[in-house]
Design a protein around this nucleic acid. Structure first.
Length: 274
DNA sequence: ATACTCCCCTGAGAGC
DNA sequence: TGCTCTCAGGGGAGTA
């Protein structure tokens, strides 16, 4: 499932491989990918040139001449670039035709991904981003401010990490890694976390996400590859997907539990509940 | 304000 | 072998 590092890898790859073509046509094969409707979407996007590629949290953003195209890949959304007209497969739902003869295909096995288009504006004004906080790497993030806002809450730590209004970009895999790095049990109530814990959370969030970006993301389960992107961070995971394997610190067997309904891996010895 | 539940989808894996 | 059943999973919407 693409989280921040995987989306960043896709963004960087699009920047290099797709460049700045003009979109001259769009074919839509599954309406629900485009909540604004395919006719509206086509009418807006056709004729515009891709000027830049941005990202906020797990959202991929295409800066066009007049509008911003925002995509969320959810679990399995992928983009593929083809040098010439290419037959779509059963999971290709949107095909963008480019002025240089190439095609950009949006492929999504579970059809959970979404794309919307809005006139260029500040991030805060895009409806699709209204529940998205600052990106994990945004310099405006401040551990003390986060502590003041969140520590009254009783929700488990992992729920806060997955809440995109806390900061944007963490998904299930990295949430487990962050909890482990902080030595905190994912069920620890946020209200039991100290200022120092919040400093650690922000520090390790950025350290782990940056390491994953550098590795090209994590290739695991449903998130296989997109644009020839095959990340290697799965080799550096310390708890996630390591159920029943020894903890790399203390050799205790990694346990898998449910936290807010999500599969969660942890070391029962290194991660104490506060 | 906060916390649930459901929904969207498909394929993988389990059970028979 | 092949069928049916269950479940994961990000985030929005609706409800208690």
């Amino acid at each position: 499932m693409p989280e921040l590092p995987e989306v960043e890898t896709v963004r960087a790859t699009l920047e290099v491989q797709l460049g700045h073509p003009k979109i001259v046509g769009v074919d839509v094969y599954w309406e629900n990918i485009l909540p604004q409707g395919s006719e509206f979407f086509k009418q807006k996007i056709i004729g515009q040139t891709i000027q830049a590629y941005k990202r906020r949290g797990k959202y991929l953003m295409f800066v066009l001449d007049e509008d911003m195209l925002i995509a969320h890949l959810r679990m399995e959304g992928k983009f593929y670039i083809y040098d010439q007209p290419t037959m779509r497969n059963k999971h290709t739902h949107v095909v963008f035709h480019l002025d240089d003869g190439r095609e950009l295909h949006y492929n999504d096995t579970r059809k959970f991904g979404r794309m919307e288009i809005y006139p260029l504006a500040e991030d805060e004004n895009y409806p699709m981003l209204k529940n998205t906080g600052l990106d994990a790497f945004d310099e405006r993030l401040d551990a003390l401010a986060l502590y003041k806002k969140w520590h009254p809450k009783k929700m488990p730590l992992k729920a806060m990490l997955l809440d995109q209004t806390f900061l944007a970009g963490i998904g299930n895999i990295y949430a487990d890694e962050i909890c482990f790095a902080c030595g905190l049990h994912p069920k620890t109530p946020v209200s039991h976390c100290s200022k120092k814990d919040f400093e650690n959370i922000l520090f390790h969030t950025r350290r782990i996400l940056a390491g994953a970006v550098k590795a090209g993301g994590t290739t695991i389960r449903s998130y296989t590859s997109s644009l020839g992107v095959t990340g290697l961070f799965q080799l550096k995971l310390k708890v996630h997907a390591r159920e029943n394997q020894p903890c790399l610190i203390c050799q205790t067997s990694i346990k898998k539990i449910k936290v807010i309904g999500r599969g969660t891996c942890l070391c029962p010895k290194c991660q104490k509940r506060k």
